[in-house]
Design a protein around this nucleic acid. Structure first.
Length: 479
RNA sequence: GCCCCCAUCGUCCAGCGGUCUAGGACGCCGGCCUUUCAAGCCGGUAACACGGGUUCGAAUCCCGUUGGGGGCACCA
């Protein structure tokens, strides 16, 4: 049977990188086995849900290239794929349970429950529900008119044992699971109910999700069994943490996938990095093409260790992916960023100039967002001078002479090409007996505004003679 | 408090009883290259948490300790 897997995010926040990884593993598993990848929206919590978040999540999945076969937006045989549209179905299942004695009405009020929970904690007893309303005869309960929630009657004594695909056998004694609420007193379903019902109804075969849900898995299995659904295989992925070993947070490595996109991370690099955060293709490979992932992905080979999200490695990997881009592709992804940075569109000639220097930038960028700052000096009328660079390079002996000499030579240079520029400036170095460092850095700072820039001769050619001379002259006057 | 999960370099991953004086990648350090910065190349640093078993033989299996994480809601 072809596997059917799903990712079921709640639109209560921007797409989390951990959810992104879980989605990727689901997608890889589906693609590897010719299965179906489903995206559904667990939006029962209408208070905290928003369209903005819902859109961000789908956008993030698309950005990662995780196309889904069924679900939100694309539809499918089990529509709708939004829990908020299936409320009647959950109620129907819960009522069925009630009729079969698999669930019961609980008349305890939230205040009472809270008080008992505190008391239990204080006495060192388990804080879960004590099951007292289970003793109320069904007819008596049905006749009552005060508000009630619906609780699942967990079989006890009992034990749920399942073979987790990444963790192996997991057994949990029902003594550790209370009779959990499946329908709130307002008739709305809890996550436990809605999610489990959907998994059965959508014919999910494998649930691949975060380890945070490991301990509630028995509840989901129990509901599935009560519905008479076929057994579902589970795989629990370890969680992701920030560099300090604590939860991923704004301070330590962003939680939102979009933050990385905005920072200039390529989706290909993100996918590669995320895939390797808990999984290995087998050999000691680091740069792994998506096709290879699809061919080799195996849940059984997924690591049980929690993983720390290491932005430094991601950025290194991003640099590798940037360098591997086709020149035209790099230009295409870069142009909008440059234009945004400049606050205007580039004209045809300028685009051609950008294309000319792009390969030089591509070689040294780790993030797409570094590109605009590296080429900015080529497209503005005046460059601001970086103070540290100026102080370091322009205040030494003989700088004025270098600038003046370069100005002379470049003014009369017959043709404005990289080769010609290099030739005359090197001749200048020789004539003045200067090291390249001594003689060229002042020109670099004068023209680019910084001691760090793309290669000099190419930069001058791209800048053009007029601007180059103007900048040199400006600096000469300022010295 | 109770339940569950996890434990190899700072980080990610390899190792699934002998081939481990533990391998790869990032990072870090040093060198080469060099017009700056990168990139590239070369080299180095660095780990089997601890204690018991099992075994002729444990990083690999079992138990315990410690440490980390998750869960115990009318949140998802």
């Amino acid at each position: 049977m072809k596997p059917r897997v799903r990712i079921a995010p709640s639109p209560t926040g921007f797409l989390h990188v951990g959810v992104g990884r879980t989605a990727l593993y689901n997608w890889l598993f589906a693609r590897r086995h010719g299965g179906t990848f489903i995206v559904r929206s667990d939006d029962t919590d209408l208070e905290r849900s928003s369209d903005e978040y819902a859109e961000d999540i789908l956008e993030g999945l698309r950005w990662l290239g995780l196309d889904w076969d069924e679900g939100v937006e694309v539809g499918g045989p089990h529509e709708p794929y939004r829990q908020s549209l299936r409320l009647d179905r959950y109620r129907e299942v819960a009522e069925g349970f009630l009729g079969e004695g698999k669930a019961y009405r609980c008349f305890c009020t939230p205040a009472e429950l809270e008080k008992r929970r505190e008391a239990a904690m204080a006495e060192g007893r388990p804080p879960g529900y004590d099951g007292r309303c289970r003793a109320i005869p069904a007819e008596e309960a049905a006749a009552r008119t005060d508000p009630f929630s619906t609780r699942f009657a967990v079989p006890r004594p009992g034990e749920t044992v399942f073979a987790d695909l990444v963790r192996g056998e997991v057994r949990i004694d029902h003594g550790n699971i209370d009779d959990f609420v499946i329908l709130r007193s307002d008739g709305s379903p809890t996550y436990q109910l809605a999610s489990s019902v959907d998994d059965v109804d959508f014919e999910i075969t494998h649930v691949v999700r975060g380890e945070d849900l490991l301990s509630s898995t028995p509840k989901h299995i129990l509901i599935g069994e009560a519905m008479g659904g076929p057994p579902i295989a589970y795989a629990h992925l370890s969680l992701l943490f920030g560099p300090d070993g604590k939860k991923l947070s704004k301070r330590h490595g962003d939680t939102a996938l979009r933050a990385y996109r905005e920072r200039g991370i390529l989706p290909e690099a993100m996918v590669n990095y995320l895939a390797l955060l808990g999984w290995s293709p087998g050999e000691d490979e680091t740069i792994v093409p998506r096709q290879v992932m699809q061919d080799r992905f195996d849940l059984g080979a997924v690591s049980r260790n929690p993983a720390i999200f290491d932005a430094a490695k991601l950025e290194w990997m991003n640099g590798v992916y940037i360098r591997n881009l086709e020149a035209a592709d790099f230009l295409e992804r870069t142009l909008p960023l440059v234009e945004e940075d400049l606050g205007r569109e580039l004209d045809g000639a300028e685009v051609a100039r950008l294309a000319g220097v792009a390969p030089l930038i591509q070689e040294r960028a780790r993030l797409l967002t570094e590109v605009p700052e590296q080429v900015r000096f080529l497209f503005v009328d005046e460059v601001p001078y970086d103070e540290a660079s100026w102080n370091k390079v322009m205040k030494t002996e003989g700088v004025g002479e270098v600038i003046a000499s370069a100005l002379d030579r470049l003014t009369v240079l017959p043709e404005w090409t990289t080769a010609a520029i290099e030739e005359t400036l090197r001749a200048m170095l020789e004539e003045k007996e200067l090291s390249a460092r001594k003689g060229l850095q002042p020109i670099r700072v004068a023209v680019s505004g910084s001691s760090v820039s793309p290669p000099l001769f190419e930069s001058l050619e791209s800048l053009g003679r007029t601007r180059t001379l103007a900048r040199l002259a400006g600096v000469a006057a300022r010295l």
